[in-house]
Design a binder for these strands. Structure first.
Length: 546
DNA sequence: GAATGCGGGTCAC
DNA sequence: GTGACCCGCATTC
């Protein structure tokens, strides 16, 4: 036991950071499998990410030492915000009534692991399901699916053809080896009025898709107008992020799944109500350099408690958090599907630090333009605000910006299948999407690495009125397009982006027969015919057609 | 059907 | 003893 004798108080940010440095140091002290004579991780057929820096460990605002295995854990009166994407060696204490905590939720695909301790629930990370061909979607995103928790279901997943029909790759699990060669483990323990969470290890893989997307796909399974994987992931991430920003104000009563499906249309009518305070905790972006200011610990803090500092308390932090983790930037070896809505935004990675100030100015200008264009009261303006009020360091510029950004998260976790996941639509109607739709805007604004997002919609898709899922996607589309326009204005040369711009008329089309629920991603033969190239392929000069 | 929690059991160190 | 992992069962959604 290492319980401090002094009363629990909320320490200064500096102390928090110091603690995180210690935590990170502790994590680095982890013995390697070699040193322990443990079997090395299984050789992976999947392309391994290049050595990646250790992501920041999640922070706890509770400065007290404890361990999940302590006989008696400290009693606290203040709790951490729930963090779906807890990473690194960290300990968090959640309120006992926290629904997510009660469900032992996580954005990571965690499966139960028997530790023969009835008091402590142990879970280990399953990694992420990737395409072994390392294919890229037209938007540059990689395939990063969520491994099924159920062993049987997971076995079925593996070896399946990549959802990208033009890719011959197979889905393979990239196991998590973030804890000394073993999967990252999470420990949950209930004691008193608190739920204690401890994570060991730092995930060495991309985030899987949000849990909710699996549900979404199920919903879509019977829908002949299922979108592409890219869109699914994008929209999922969009919803994910949005839910993140709303988490604190939501949590309605649970709704049976069937009822949710039936109510989806009704949900669309709900107006987007921004959260006064968003208590969802993203992955704390502490840095080992201890140079960070209080990322996410916005001055505004929380109105509910002087101790509680919502990490996402302001819209401004939206993208900072999103951009900061670096998953999308390839820092961790993967360019995850990004959208401003995405939990894995890589959009910001197209910019570098030296340009950030200029970008901000441009963004502000763009923001003003957007404000003029966007309808009010439909929620879209909310998103716009979150998008364009990015601080100079908001767009991720590399690992050194961890401290100013946070991870996002999601709907995933607990709420993946919860009604709340589908209950927080903006409620804006398709018409609003037209503002960002391809019909009115210059093509130059659309053909970005993510342009396919705007091409996937069946022209007849709304003929029968938008479904819940459709609007879900539309929402992602509109939001993403907004940011794409900003990106285009940046005029920053990124090879990948340049490649896209070389074919300003190129377009991608998706088709789905509805039979096997497999999606085609095709380039319009009438326009550009150059193969799509990923940044990597551009470097190597090898075109990638998937 | 899948997620989740639980627990028995095995294996390696 | 510890940790990882497999498996089956039951419950819930």
């Amino acid at each position: 036991m290492r319980i401090e004798q002094k009363p629990l108080t909320f320490q200064t940010v500096n102390l928090i950071e110091q603690n995180m440095v210690l935590n990170n140091m502790a994590s680095t002290m982890c013995l390697t499998p070699q040193s322990q004579n443990l079997p090395l991780p299984l050789p992976m057929s999947l392309p391994q990410p290049s050595p990646v820096p250790s992501p920041p460990a999640s922070k706890s605002r509770i400065q007290i030492e404890w361990d999940i295995n302590d006989t008696i854990v400290p009693t606290v009166s203040e709790f951490d915000d729930f963090n779906d994407w807890a990473n690194g060696h960290c300990r968090l204490i959640y309120a006992g009534h926290n629904e997510d905590a009660k469900k032992h939720a996580s954005g990571w695909a965690m499966r139960n692991t028997n530790n023969h301790n009835v008091n402590i629930l142990k879970k280990s990370c399953l990694g992420v399901l990737l395409c072994n061909a390392n294919c890229r979607l037209p938007n540059g995103a990689s395939v990063h699916l969520r491994p099924a928790i159920c062993d049987k279901a997971r076995r079925k997943q593996q070896g399946k053809q990549c959802p990208n029909r033009n890719c011959n790759g197979r889905l393979e699990i990239q196991p998590c080896r973030g804890h000394c060669g073993y999967p990252v483990t999470h420990f949950w323990r209930r004691a008193g009025n608190a739920i204690y969470f401890q994570a060991k290890g730092t995930h060495d893989h991309a985030r899987p898709e949000a849990k909710g997307s699996t549900e979404a796909r199920r919903l879509l399974a019977g829908n002949r107008r299922v979108r592409s994987l890219a869109v699914i992931l994008a929209s999922d991430a969009a919803l994910n992020d949005k839910l993140c920003s709303l988490r604190s104000s939501k949590r309605p009563m649970k709704t049976p799944r069937k009822q949710r499906a039936n109510n989806n249309t009704e949900l669309l009518q709900q107006n987007y109500q921004p959260a006064a305070t968003t208590a969802t905790a993203g992955v704390a972006a502490a840095t080992t350099t201890n140079t960070s200011t209080s990322f996410n610990q916005t001055p505004s803090s929380s109105s509910s408690s002087s101790f509680v500092t919502p990490q996402w308390s302001t819209a401004d932090g939206y993208y900072q958090q999103d951009a900061g983790l670096g998953y999308g930037s390839g820092i961790y070896g993967y360019d995850m599907l990004h959208s401003p809505l995405s939990t894995n935004s890589s959009t910001a990675s197209y910019y570098n630090a030296a340009e950030s100030q200029q970008q901000q100015q441009q963004q502000q200008q763009q923001h003003q333009q957007q404000q003029l264009l966007l309808p009010q009261g439909n929620g879209y303006d909310q998103l716009t605000t979150t998008t364009t009020t990015t601080t100079p360091v908001g767009y991720q510029t590399g690992m050194n910006l961890y401290e100013s950004c946070d991870d996002t998260s999601s709907l995933t976790s607990s709420s993946g299948y919860s009604s709340e996941d589908y209950s927080y639509f903006n409620g804006y109607v398709p018409q609003s999407l037209d503002l960002s739709g391809s019909s009115n805007a210059s093509p130059d604004n659309f053909y970005t690495p993510h342009s396919e997002i705007f091409s996937v919609f069946d022209p007849n898709i709304n003929s029968g009125g938008p479904s819940t899922v459709e609007l879900l996607y539309d929402e992602a589309t509109a939001y993403q397009q907004q940011t794409l326009q900003q990106q285009q204005q940046q005029q920053q040369s990124f090879s990948y982006q340049q490649q896209q711009q070389q074919h300003p008329t190129a377009d991608y089309y998706y088709s789905n027969t509805g039979v096997d629920n497999v999606w085609n991603i095709q380039m319009d033969a009438s326009v550009a015919t150059a193969p799509y190239q990923t940044p990597a392929s551009l470097e190597s000069g090898i075109g990638v057609f998937c």
